[in-house]
Structures are given as structure tokens and as C-alpha cells.
Simulated assay, not measured.
Amino acid sequence: MQLSLSLSRSPLESVRDALLCEFGPQRPVARMDPISQLVKSSISGSTPDAVSWAAFLRLRAEFKCWEDLAQASEGRVLEIIHDVTHAQDKARRLPLALRMIEARIGWLSLSHLKTLTVDAARHELQSLPGVGVKVAACVLNFSDLAMRSLVIDTHVQRVAKRIGLVGSGDATHAYHALMDLAPEAWTADDLFELHWLMKRGLGQMLCPHEAPRCGACPLKHDCAKIGVGHSADVLAWRPRG
């Protein structure tokens, strides 16, 4: 661990506090139902937010209800979400995932997940086609289920590596590592806030893949990879001094 933190506190607390001082509190304004969140998150991977939101709104305008989307052909869905990344795969998997939920539950709903543990709910979601650890966490945390699950996207994973919170590994490894560091007292809203601070604030505004603005970063004094730019994920730690 490279951050010079008090042993009595989780490293995530110090990271959050520093980012809160820079960007202020970030709380969810509104939450969608879990099926709507699943639809939105399933088409969002590797796609700019503006593009995925526009595609989601087109889906919502095209279909009177998500049950109609479940029965739609791949071609019809592809026409609507054509500009998202990996559109053909998503157009095939999304209706199938919705039909699988209907077959399991008897109708199109995920409200029962609230009665499960976070891990059990996440595993059930990840058994659906096209749903990995990120999409599952989005459904659990961003929707009105409001469960304790941290969304790990590419920005969060990148900056978590750069500041020494996680080591090498995939998003699943990063999810478990960061959830292990999250204080038990933190709520779903606290984890939503941490995701926003690490993604929007740190990952997109200050520490993008290339040309990070290290001088403006509130974590710069504790980041051993300061100034290494887009190679920060693969280079060895720099000595400080």
C-alpha cells in the first residue's frame, strides 16, 4: 500500500475524504427500477455515457414496456442501439436476458433480489447473458434496490491501481478488493458517491488514461505513480523524495 494512511482507517476513507474536499458530496438524485437499470447498464459497456443514454431513451420510446423488448428480434434491437459499442452482441443478449428473468420469476421483475444477500443477488445477475460484475453492481447499487455494491468501471479500476488500492487483476478482482476495504457502516449511497468521485472526479477530470493532471490531484502527495501518464498501469512504482 502506497498511501500514507492511518492504520485505524480504511484507505478508501482517506481517498473519499480527499476527493470530497475537491468535488463535494455526490448523492443519487433518482433511481430507476432494476429492470430499467439492467437495460441501461447492459448497453453501456465501453460506450460513452451520452451515447448509451441516447440509445436507452430510444429503447424506452420504441417499446411500451420491457416485456415487448424481451420479445423483440435481434435485428430490431440492433437498429435502435446501433451506435453503442459491440451493438450486435448487446442486441442479441439483452432480450435473451429479459426472457430468462421472465422464465425464472414468472414475470419481468428483479425486486426479489432485495431479499437476498449482495453476493447472492450479484451471482444471480451474473448468470444472465451479457451481465458481468460491473453490470450486476450497477443494477444492485444504482437502481431502487439500493444495495451495497461498488460499480467498478475502467476509470475506477485504473485509478485504484494507480494509487495503490488494488494490484493487477481484472474487474472482478478489483471489485472484491475494494469491497473488502469499504467500511461496513457505508451505505449504498456512500458506495454510489465513491464510484462517482473515483470515476467522474478522479478518473475523468484529473487522472485520465493519458496526460493526467497530477498537479491538481488531491491525492498527489500519496501517489507513487505521479506523472507516469498512460503507462501508469504497467510501470513499476517510482521512488518518491
Score class of each variant (00 low, 15 high):
97 A>N: 01
98 L>R: 01
98 L>V: 12
99 R>I: 12
99 R>Q: 07
99 R>C: 13
101 I>A: 07
101 I>Q: 01
101 I>F: 08
102 E>Q: 15
102 E>N: 05
102 E>L: 04
103 A>N: 14
103 A>V: 05
104 R>D: 10
104 R>V: 05
104 R>E: 04
105 I>V: 14
105 I>R: 11
106 G>L: 03
107 W>L: 03
109 S>G: 03
109 S>K: 10
110 L>T: 04
111 S>E: 12
111 S>W: 13
112 H>R: 05
113 L>S: 08
114 K>N: 05
116 L>N: 03
117 T>R: 07
117 T>I: 06
117 T>K: 10
117 T>V: 08
117 T>H: 01
119 D>S: 15
119 D>P: 06
123 H>A: 03
123 H>L: 00
123 H>W: 04
126 Q>G: 04
126 Q>D: 03
128 L>P: 02
129 P>F: 12
130 G>F: 00
130 G>E: 00
132 G>R: 00
132 G>E: 02
132 G>F: 03
132 G>P: 06
133 V>P: 06
135 V>T: 15
135 V>E: 13
136 A>M: 02
137 A>P: 06
137 A>Y: 12
139 V>P: 00
139 V>A: 04
140 L>I: 06
140 L>Y: 00
140 L>A: 00
140 L>K: 08
142 F>Y: 11
143 S>M: 11
144 D>Y: 01
144 D>C: 09
144 D>V: 04
145 L>W: 12
145 L>F: 11
145 L>Y: 04
147 M>E: 07
149 S>E: 14
149 S>P: 04
149 S>H: 02
150 L>G: 13
150 L>S: 09
151 V>G: 06
153 D>H: 11
153 D>P: 10
154 T>C: 01
156 V>M: 15
156 V>Y: 12
157 Q>A: 15
159 V>W: 05
159 V>F: 06
160 A>T: 05
160 A>W: 09
160 A>R: 14
161 K>Y: 13
161 K>M: 15
162 R>L: 05
164 G>A: 06
164 G>H: 14
164 G>W: 15
165 L>I: 14
165 L>E: 09
166 V>Q: 14
167 G>W: 11
167 G>D: 13
169 G>A: 10
169 G>N: 11
169 G>D: 04
170 D>V: 01
170 D>K: 02
171 A>Q: 01
173 H>E: 13
173 H>P: 07
175 Y>D: 04
176 H>D: 08
177 A>Y: 03
178 L>T: 06
178 L>M: 14
179 M>C: 14
180 D>K: 11
180 D>F: 15
181 L>Y: 08
182 A>R: 11
182 A>N: 14
183 P>N: 09
184 E>A: 11
185 A>T: 06
186 W>Q: 11
187 T>C: 08
